[in-house]
Design a protein around this nucleic acid. Structure first.
Length: 582
RNA sequence: GUCCCAGUAGCUCAGUCGGAUAGAGCACUCGCCUUCUAAGCGAGUUGUCGGGGGUUCGAAUCCCUCCUGGGACGCCA
């Protein structure tokens, strides 16, 4: 049995490292392991060690070292070694490796690629966090899908994950909304049109307030009542929140995204007082022009405002309370904030203030910034109407998918469900495909492109693998036919370049998952999935699977099953569903 | 003005810890469905890795500097 997280490739790397370290004076196995890398192409072997760094210590030329190592290298798991221009190139015993790897994947199934490195540790992830009473547009998509992917990646690695939706559900805008509703709104219309109507009232309030500034005072007064627990204000606020949540839930359900807690800003209203008191006790607060702030000069940062002139709180205050609450409640080893890079300074300040309060876990707070979305180069603005509603985008993608299915696979049984899975997959994948720090200029054409490195391509490839598996069996199940196992397959039949290409991709899954976790970068998984698809499609076109030769057929089928498992697991990590038929 | 981030093929982007000829997709041209899903596969064209210095056996990657673009910089979040 294989220990969870101990992947085939890692085992072989360790064997190679041990064998090499054995023949080198004063160089540890760990050192060698760290030096090992994957050669750029298969002719150069499966693993390679550059000898340049050893050159100084050993007082020998790299090529001489490589040749010396080649002479002494002895390890059953490898069939040979070569010394090429300063590199020691190792060639796996392909048969042994194929059997091991396929055995690992088949026995692990849904857990292939997972590990338990996070066992017993909690990670809090704050993501999505839209504002109540404002529509959910494409600008909110990134935080939602990046956070969702990080959540799944951490869970896959054994962490206990707490997904938090830090809703923007508090602030003076609710006073404005109450005033606007009472003056110009009606219940039926709000119930019928939801956020659309709330936004209309909100915008109308601003238009009127320009002519009649007293409205602003009225709004402030209502918000004060709300903070004091006024029953009427609270009832309206709760209603607005419920209406918004109902619409957000619709989006989250389309996206297949979920949370463990919906603790928004309002949740922390009674938790900020104690934090302010504590900062006062520690002499961190300084009065300046009537405000209270924390100086951060020693970190070369501007001061962090904690209280306004009128004594009310700011986002820093709320985030302080939230950070402390999360530590007390969840005992996290990492607490992530998935927001746009526009908030870089805010979070750096926040973390420093917590450090200054003496909390040694300040370094467990991590901002996960991502690039900004713009529309035709102009920034998104709800009030200017320069915005694309996420629901519209998703529906367009679903409709387009539905059309394609109609022309290519009209007999598919559950077309609507598959269209949703693939259409939504296209949108999610598109957002997770490049490094999260890159800015995105939204384009309908690109978002709805299903060719090449896209979600539909990956899902299609998965469905294609399923199709072969179905045809090999009873026409329904995608399980391998009875008797096809790693132990019985003939690995010599998987030595052609196409099959080898697939195997070497499959072997790297576990390392990629860990990399994605360390760098907090879902795109590493997206890229990997595409690499697997490309290798598999090459194999698919080059090597007929359902051939008469039963031994060859079974060997190839086992490989197809491994691809199907890896694609399904990989796509699940970035939040894509994997229909078996498309 | 100060600080942070980004700059790689016509476009969108990968590029591991500094390693071997800098890679994909899109677009364009051509070829491939009487074998398993053509949302696919193959072939072809495309590079001052923003510029200039430096460190190194070796730099797209590290350091310095400049240019361009984006962002942040006290009472919004």
């Amino acid at each position: 049995m294989i220990a969870k997280g101990e992947f085939t490739m890692i085992r072989y790397k360790k064997l190679a490292a041990a064998a090499i370290a054995n023949t080198l004076e004063g160089v540890s196995e760990e050192d060698v392991f760290g030096l090992l890398e994957y050669p750029p192409n298969p002719e150069m072997g499966d693993l390679s060690m550059p000898c340049f760094k050893l050159s100084k210590a050993l007082r020998k030329a790299p090529q001489a070292i490589a040749e010396g190592l080649k002479e002494q290298f002895s390890e059953d798991a490898f069939e040979r070694a070569e010394a090429v221009s300063g590199y020691l190139n190792l060639f796996l015993d392909k048969s042994k490796f194929a059997v091991d790897l396929i055995g690992d994947i088949l026995s692990a199934g849904d857990t292939y690629g997972s590990a338990d490195i996070g066992k017993g540790q909690s990670v809090v992830i704050d993501y999505s966090s839209p504002n109540i009473a404002k529509p959910f547009h494409i600008g909110h998509l990134r935080s939602t899908v990046i956070g969702n992917a990080l959540r799944k990646i951490h869970a896959f690695l054994g962490f206990n994950v707490v997904g938090v939706n830090h809703l923007g559900d508090w602030g003076t805008q609710f006073g404005k909304l109450i005033v606007a509703y009472q003056k110009w709104g009606n219940a039926e219309k709000v119930e019928a049109e939801g956020i659309t109507e709330l936004l209309r009232l909100y915008v109308y309030f601003h238009e009127q307030a320009e002519k009649e500034p007293a409205l602003e005072d009225e709004a402030r007064a209502w918000f004060t009542s709300l903070e004091r627990g006024d029953a009427e204000a609270f009832k309206l606020w709760q209603w607005f929140v419920d209406i918004s949540l109902k619409e957000f839930e619709k989006i989250y359900s389309l996206l297949n995204v979920s949370f463990d807690a919906f603790t928004g800003e309002s949740f922390y209203m009674d938790k900020m007082g104690p934090v302010i008191e504590r900062m006062k006790e520690l002499n961190l607060l300084e009065e300046d022009e009537g405000t209270m702030l924390v100086r951060l000069d020693e970190f070369n940062m501007p001061p962090a405002l904690m209280l306004k002139k009128d004594g009310s709180s700011l986002y820093h205050t709320r985030d302080m309370a939230a950070a402390l609450y999360r530590k007390d409640t969840y005992h996290f080893v990492k607490s992530l904030y998935v927001t746009s890079y526009a908030q870089n300074l805010h979070f750096q300040q926040l973390f420093k203030v917590i450090e200054k309060m003496g909390y040694d876990w300040a370094d467990q707070l991590i901002h996960v910034p991502f690039g900004q979305v713009s529309l035709e180069g102009a920034s998104l603005s709800t009030r200017k109407g320069n915005v694309v509603m996420l629901e519209d985008l998703l529906n367009q993608a679903i409709a387009k998918t539905r059309e394609i299915i109609e022309t290519k696979n009209a007999n598919l049984e559950n077309k609507d469900e598959v269209a949703r899975q693939v259409g939504v997959g296209a949108i999610i994948f598109n957002d997770l495909y490049s490094n999260r720090i890159k800015d995105v200029v939204f384009s309908w054409e690109e978002a709805l492109n299903f060719d090449g490195e896209t979600g539909p391509y990956a899902q299609y490839t998965h469905a294609r693998a399923c199709s072969v598996l179905r045809k090999a069996g009873n026409g329904e199940s995608i399980d391998l036919p009875a008797g096809v196992t790693a132990a019985t397959l003939n690995p010599a039949l998987l030595q052609n370049p196409e099959a080898q290409g697939v195997l070497s991709e499959l072997a790297r899954f576990g390392e990629r998952v860990e990399q994605a976790m360390e760098k907090l970068e879902p795109s590493i998984i997206s890229r990997y999935v595409i690499d697997v698809c490309q290798a598999f499609n090459r194999f698919y076109h080059g090597c007929p699977i359902l051939v008469d030769d039963i031994e060859l057929r079974n060997a190839r089928l086992a490989l197809v099953k491994c691809v199907q498992i890896t694609l399904r697991n990989g796509l699940a990590l970035i939040g894509l569903e994997t229909p078996e038929k498309i």
